[in-house]
Write a protein that binds this DNA or RNA. Structure first.
Lengths: 334, 334
DNA sequence: TTGTACGCGTTATCAT
DNA sequence: ATGATAACGCGTACAA
């Protein structure tokens, strides 16, 4: 079985260099090209990536870093969806992807990625305001695309959604339906998403001249925190709750139901993400839809383009969509 | 900044070979070892994997193949959990992992994996009875560990749970609580899990002398199919339903509730998997717990061991646990 | 258009 | 214990 370029060269009666040119598209006469191609097909030749990398510096392998807590990884289809979007694009235009999850410290993960040596580039989820992994990748020579970004990442390549704007839109929606004591359950403080959504909420409230005093409860993106924060907001007399994601909203819903409150009559409820379960809640949840799959595939495309022209950063801001369901505008039949 | 072995050799005043020995544990005098180590640390040296691969044939990179339909990938935490288990072990003992999902055909995926050239081994989920990807990997020179296996894979290395046995246990449980018309909702036919669980069900039923005529409904592991199959089984007069996984059981529960039937008084209900939501159903679901995370980490360990001694296949059959909840033994308060 | 020859960074073999 | 040196498989100037 022919395994190396040399083998094929011998079989084709040409030099190794010529075979290489056939494969990589150099100047070859049509006659020899066909001849070589035939030998090539019939022997199922696969170029050795390691050798190719050593000689050319490129491997077609890109790294994907999703340094998140395991619970988040399982509970939230976000990451699987993202992975799928990335994989869709990479699988047709690159040789493969390497994956790093959050099992080791960020510092160690960074060091391993940089030491890998055979990556063409990296896509990394940047969800924290302060993240040595992201910072390290950005200053490294490795072409990097962020999914989510911080204000300090303006020069970097990234794919993101406009959390501030989306949160403003949602808050305005709650104002539009006549609510005035609108509470917000934040996400985990220190994350970009939490801070930006909080900012959007504050923007809309202040612009409408509404007070937010006592109406901000600190959650952590998880369901239980939603339930707790809802108690706090109810005690503050809220007539609407904007939770920073769907999971927290689901938690809040438990509390409201336990108190015998009707959604949305007594309290309007809204989330963020539009995960599959959002439409199956009772009542179905008003929320913000963000195209997670699209973000993944777009990040992959951005990276591939970045590899072509390394000096031109790519920045993609994804649109979001306000999805109105019965948890805010439901006509209950009472 | 020192990048190559040669640079470090120069800085340490020794030869390239000696530095390599320090790194890979060859015979070096304690004196020079310390000296070299110091230079090594202070210069943050990272060996080039491509070069190492070319010279030694090993990279420390292993492939993970989960060729499943996207919907399954998102809805079911199974895969994220598996990935996490794999990653836990691999992240401390290997350089990294490459991931292939189901975006391309199995044939193409196979060809890409084999062409990669820099993988030390592969872990692949083998859920279908007929799978060219798995077959191709098994006959390839690439050390391979299966997660799940077929009867034809007896010589291969694999990690699996004893589906037949677990399904028997569950069916016996339903018999023990006095049910006689026990229906089974199968998984997607053609998958190992579906066939084995069906077999286990049949074993237990036949052993107890119970008829299964009209009591087997063909599902596909998804929730909607569970709801449909339940209708069929109710019409056949079932007093218990053993669904082939938790999602299908949840679907069946919808049907039962829609018909005003009480679980478990009118119909006992059981699932398989013990996913997080199983205990949150109303009533909480009796099911089979399988250590998915453990299967992932064990598969990784099996592969790493296989790399050490390639001629000795590893086979791990994971224990399962019958988790009894109110959907089968619940004392309702009527 | 084609072939020769060198280099990529490492491991492994052979002397010393 | 240490140091030359030959692979490993490929890409690519350069020469022909």
């Amino acid at each position: 079985m022919a395994r190396t370029l040399d083998d094929l060269a011998r079989l084709s009666g040409v030099s190794r260099a010529t075979v290489s040119r056939v494969i990589n598209g150099g100047p070859v006469s049509e006659q020899t090209r066909l001849k070589v191609l035939e030998v090539l097909e019939s022997h199922q030749y696969r170029p050795n990536l390691a050798a190719r990398s050593l000689a050319s510096g490129r491997t077609g392998v890109i790294g994907v870093v999703m340094h998140v807590d395991p619970p988040l990884l399982f509970e939230d289809p976000y990451f699987a969806t993202l992975l799928h979007g990335l994989s869709d694009v990479l699988s047709e235009r690159a040789a493969g992807m390497m994956l790093w999850l959050g099992n080791r410290s960020k510092e160690e993960t960074l060091s391993r990625i940089l030491g890998m040596g055979l990556l063409d580039g990296v896509v990394v989820t940047a969800d924290m305001l302060d993240d040595p992994l992201v910072d390290g990748l950005l200053v490294s020579p490795l072409p990097t695309v962020l999914i989510g970004h911080r204000r300090t990442d303006r020069d970097a390549s990234y794919v993101d959604v406009d959390n501030v704007n989306a949160a403003e839109t949602m808050t305005r929606h709650l104002i539009d339906i006549g609510r005035t004591r609108i509470g917000h359950i934040t996400g985990r403080r220190g994350t970009v998403a939490a801070e930006d959504r909080l900012r959007g909420y504050l923007n809309a409230m202040h612009r409408a001249g509404l007070s937010t005093e006592g109406l901000i409860a600190e959650g952590d993106f998880n369901r239980p925190s939603g339930a707790e924060c809802a108690i706090q907001l109810m005690d503050a007399g809220a007539d609407a709750i904007f939770a920073s994601n769907d999971a927290t909203a689901a938690g809040a819903l438990e509390t409201l139901r336990a108190r015998g409150l009707i959604v949305p009559d007594d309290v309007a409820l809204a989330g963020f993400d539009d995960l599959p379960f959002a439409s199956e809640l009772d009542p179905p949840l008003t929320t913000i839809r963000q195209g997670v799959h699209g973000q993944g595939s777009e990040a992959a495309r951005a990276l591939l383009e970045l590899l072509e022209s390394p000096r031109t950063p790519r920045r993609v801001l994804f649109p979001t969509e306000l999805v109105i369901r019965q948890s805010t505008i439901g006509g209950s039949l009472r």
